[in-house]
Simulated assay, not measured.
Amino acid sequence: MVKQQLHILQVGNVLVSPDIFTEYFCCDLDACKGICCVEGDAGAPVELDEIAEIENCLDMVWGDLSASAQSVIDRQGVAYADRDGELVTSIVNGKDCAFTCYAGETCLCALERACREGRSRFVKPVSCSLYPIREKKFPGGISGINYHKWQICESARAKGREFNLPLYKFLKEPLIRRFGAEWYKELLELADELRVQGLI
């Protein structure tokens, strides 16, 4: 565990919660069935350029979406402003992401599936790829990332402990996608320093 004197850290212009180093995580779709895409009260945070990307590949995923999702998208588009004024993906029945689709009982992202199958080049919103890390933006170009602990992800925490996989390693690719390879290299160097000091 992180010792008490270890508080918020900084890598470049990103404030980093110690949880990123100390919490273990590895998604276990066999156990959770992708429930994070169908639980909650708002969609996934999206940037304006991501909304454009989603709109560009909408034809490729339209057939994978439920009739209810198609209706919501027809009515309000692929995204909306939530109660905090942040842009998020459209949702169905107050919770399900409009871009969910199913393989048996498991919920998948229609956007990601289309990308993996070569039907589009857009993977999915970076906020989805980063989960359970959440990003908050502050004035002056500063961002903060922290771990969002959700009960439905208990199987992922257990699997992460089994594989000794801390969050910053499990989410290597999304972190690089969001902040860049050089930033991630600095994050690894910080992790090494903390380990040498016995802080993680």
Rank of each mutant, 00 (worst) to 15 (best):
S127C: 11
G63F: 09
Y131R: 03
D192K: 14
T22P: 01
S17F: 01
P125I: 03
E189H: 09
S17C: 10
K149G: 03
L199I: 08
L6Q: 02
R121I: 11
G40N: 09
E173M: 14
G144P: 01
F138I: 07
L29S: 06
E47Y: 10
C115D: 10
P132E: 06
K149I: 02
T106F: 07
D192H: 13
W183L: 03
Y80H: 13
L48A: 15
A103H: 14
G40I: 07
P132Q: 04
I133N: 00
K159Y: 02
Y102S: 13
P174T: 01
L65A: 11
R195E: 15
F25G: 00
D82A: 10
F179P: 00
C101T: 15
H148A: 11
D49M: 09
K137D: 12
T100V: 15
L165K: 14
R134G: 04
I200A: 09
E193W: 06
D96C: 07
G144V: 01
K95S: 15
E162N: 10
L108F: 11
E105G: 11
L199F: 06
C97M: 04
K3I: 07
L188G: 08
F179G: 00
Q70Y: 07
S66D: 14
V123L: 14
A158H: 07
V11N: 00
W62S: 12
Q70S: 12
L171Y: 02
V61F: 10
A31V: 02
L58G: 12
G180D: 09
N146H: 04
S129Q: 12
K185F: 11
L108E: 13
W62R: 15
V16K: 00
P174S: 02
A52T: 15
K172W: 01
F122V: 08
A156D: 06
E47C: 07
Q4E: 15
T89K: 07
E162F: 09
L111S: 12
P125K: 03
P18L: 04
G198Q: 06
A98W: 02
I176W: 01
I145T: 03
L29K: 03
A67M: 13
A98K: 02
K137C: 10
L194M: 12
V196P: 04
C26P: 03
L194G: 08
S155P: 15
Q4C: 10
K3E: 13
F138D: 11
L87D: 10
R116P: 06
A181W: 03
E162L: 14
P132K: 02
E193L: 10
R75G: 08
D41K: 12
